[in-house]
Structures are given as C-alpha cells and as structure tokens.
Design a protein around this nucleic acid. Structure first.
Lengths: 214, 214
DNA sequence: CATCTTGGTAAACAGTCGTTGACTTAATGC
DNA sequence: GCATTAAGTCAACGACTGTTTACCAAGATG
C-alpha cells in the first residue's frame, strides 16, 4: 500500500481502537466525547473530521467492523459443523475463541446492541437480523428440524442468536480472568442451546397437551 | 401525606419521569445531562441536589422503581399460573399488559441492562439475578420439570428471563403502534418459550444421542 | 522541478456542562 | 408566635464540549 493512504488508515484505526479502549473502562459509547477519543488516539480534535463526520459515523464504522468479525466466526462454526457434524460444545468453543480474540469489539457489540444511539442501534439490529436469517437457512437443511415451517425456523433462529448475544455480556463483562474461569458461562450457553435444540427437535413431535399450537 | 414531604416526592418523581420522557426520544440514559432533566422537570439545576447526589443516583432510583414494577408483574403471572394452571399464552399476555402500562420504565430497563453506567448496570444485573432465582424455585415445584437438578433449573431460569428481557426491545422500541400490531412480538415470545419449555421437559427424557450430557 | 492535494496542527468560537454559595419563602416544631 | 428547617431560586465559576478557520509540511502528480 502507498505510504499516504496507509498512514490515513492507521490513524483511522487508532481512532476506532481508542474508542474501544475508553469503553472498556466503564461507560457506554454515548458517554465518550470526540475530544476524549482524539486525545487517546494522540491526534488533535480537528483531525477527527478527516476520517468521520461525527461520533455517530465512528460508531457505525465500529458496527461494520464487528459484524465482519462476527460473520467470520459464524462462517468458521458453520464450516466445522458441516465438516465434522459438530456437537454444540465444539461450535460454542470455536465461537467463543473468536470472541476472546477480539474481546473489545464484541464488548462494544454487547454494550450497544440495545443502548446505543438510534443510528448505531439500527445498524446492529440489521446485522443481527441478517445473521439470524443466515442461520435460519442453515437450520432448514438439518434433517432433525425438517418438521418446522418457515415461521418456526425464523423464530428459532432469532432465539438462538439472541441467546448467544446475551451470553456475550457474561463472557466479556467481568475483567479478563483466567481462561478456565470463563468456562462457566460457556457451559451455561451450551446447556441453554441444548434445551432449545431439543425443544425444537421435538416440537409437535412427542410433547402434547395444552402447550401445543391451538 | 403532609404537604411538605408530599411536594418533595412530587418533584422527585417529576425528575424521574422527565428522565424517562427524554429517553423515549432516542439516546440512552448516559447521554442525558443533569440540566436537561431539570429543564424538562421545570426546576432549576441546583434543585436537583435536593433529591439526588448525582445522575447515577437518579439512575439507581429508576432501576429500583422498575424492578418493583417488574416484580409486581411477575407475582401476578405466578398467581395466575397457580390459580388457573395457565398456559404460556396467558402468562405472556398478562406480563406484556404490565409492560405496556409502564412502557417508559421498561424501556429504560431494556436500554440500560447492558449499556448503562457500571453502577446502573450492576443494579439491573442484581435485580435480574434475583428474579431468575425466584423463577427457579417456582420451576422446581413443577412436576413436569422434577427431573432437572438445581444447576439445570438455574440455567433454565436464566434462559427464560433473558429471553423475556430481550423481547422487551421488540415490544417497546417501535413507536406506540396499535395494540394489535404488537401481537407479532408477543407471538414470537410465546413460541420461543414453548421451544424452551418442551426442551426442558424432555431433557434426558426422550432425545438421546450426541447432544446429551457426556 | 513546480504544483497541487491532503492529513494533521494551532487557535479561537460560542455554548453547555456540573457544582457551589448566598438568597428567599413557606411549612414545621416548640 | 417565633425560631428553625428545608425545597427551590439566582448568579456565577471554571472546565470541557463540538466545530470552524487559517495554516503547515510532506506525499502525489504532472
């Protein structure tokens, strides 16, 4: 890459990284000021505008980046599932390894998924919806779930994605403990997904009675 | 009540209500300033300190209040469950009626559950944990779930509570539509809980194979 | 080499912020 | 009825905010 555009990308990423660093120490993205970010990044406030129109644009760039990482992780999980016919354990382990590798990015995602500014929140919601839809088309091809119609698959995917998302807080919120300490949230997530998958598998199958569709 | 303390409580609640009103129009709690809140409440900035030490204290008061409302709703659902032996449909309808009745409070809860300031976030996490534990002791008494050990019940409760919490955003985020429009998120939530409950009911029961406990 | 482009700097702007202290004023307690 | 207490007002402070303008130096371009 040419040294001109290279340098530009460098400070752009310094701004994004500084934002994440400042967020690890407490509050949300909306409580950060433009000046704080530039201070952390080691540039003057006015330089910010060479890269982003305002803080909202920076937030959207962060959403885009973390969604790229998220998608990469999902793709890896899917590949492993198709290759090995993986169990839930292995899939979660793979996914959480990606999360640990880009801890601060996924923390941003967990923090801002509901609380961010309207623009950021919408961007995250859209990204989640797309991931959920990808998952739905994956699930449709599982023989164990071929008794579910499209609506059920959509709802099931949403449930799975939201469950995984909500577990991000449990994994990322505490300070960086030893790796083995984070085994508990991982185990919790695995167990939750087992409940869900068994429920989906046996939906309208064996469980009868008043909890079924009218 | 005496006219002195009565007036005090009145402005205190005006401050809290103003905070919620300002939050309905977009951003999170952390993006509100003390002066904005007092302006909305119709008092001078300095008057704020007669009621709260700082904005964090206001946030904690809001958490306390919404947790009271949450607990009331849960108690009603539980009562109905024990009385009528309710289906999931009815329980969700009861719960969502409470949510609609105090829309802005529950919106605060949904927004700040992950993104709030450390103090507010911790308060909400603690409240959720308590609700989850109450639910666990309820579930322990259900004959259909008596095959689950304590750990499974804890995880199941957490899954249910987090699923309900995450659905709050779907119910509350869009502008106040007609009541019938919000039937879709309600139906989604019911279906999710059916998946979960069936999975829990049949855990280690019928579904065998590699997805079971090692 | 001369010219243009551009990422970053420096200084200044008007505005808002949280917080303080001295004050009014009306209900309270003796 | 009089001293006291306390909710709310007013004015002011220093600090920090987002944004703009002119400016500089170094890579890109011809």
């Amino acid at each position: 890459m040419l040294p001109r555009a290279e340098k530009k990308l460098q400070t752009r990423q310094a701004l994004m990284q500084s934002t994440l660093e400042l967020m690890t120490a407490g509050g949300g993205f909306c409580s950060l000021s433009l000046r704080e970010v530039t201070r952390q990044a080691g540039v003057v406030p006015a330089a910010f505008y060479r890269h982003f129109d305002d803080m909202d644009a920076l937030g959207l760039a962060l959403v885009e980046e973390v969604m790229r990482k998220f998608r990469t992780a999902i793709r890896e999980v899917r590949h492993h599932e198709l290759e090995v016919g993986g169990a839930i354990d292995a899939s979660i382990r793979i996914f959480l390894d990606y999360v640990e590798a880009d801890r601060s990015y996924f923390m941003f995602l967990a923090r801002e998924q509901y609380g961010g500014s309207p623009a950021v929140r919408k961007a995250i919601t859209d990204g989640m919806l797309q991931i959920s839809q990808d998952l739905a088309s994956d699930l449709r091809q599982m023989p164990r779930l071929k008794h579910l119609d499209q609506m059920d698959l959509d709802i099931l995917s949403d449930l799975i994605v939201k469950t995984v998302f909500s577990s991000l807080s449990d994994v990322l919120d505490p300070p960086q403990l030893a790796v083995r300490e984070s085994l508990q949230p991982q185990f919790q997530l695995v167990q939750k997904l087992r409940f869900i998958m068994i429920g989906a598998k046996l939906w309208r199958g064996i469980a009868g009675g008043k909890d079924q569709h009218p």
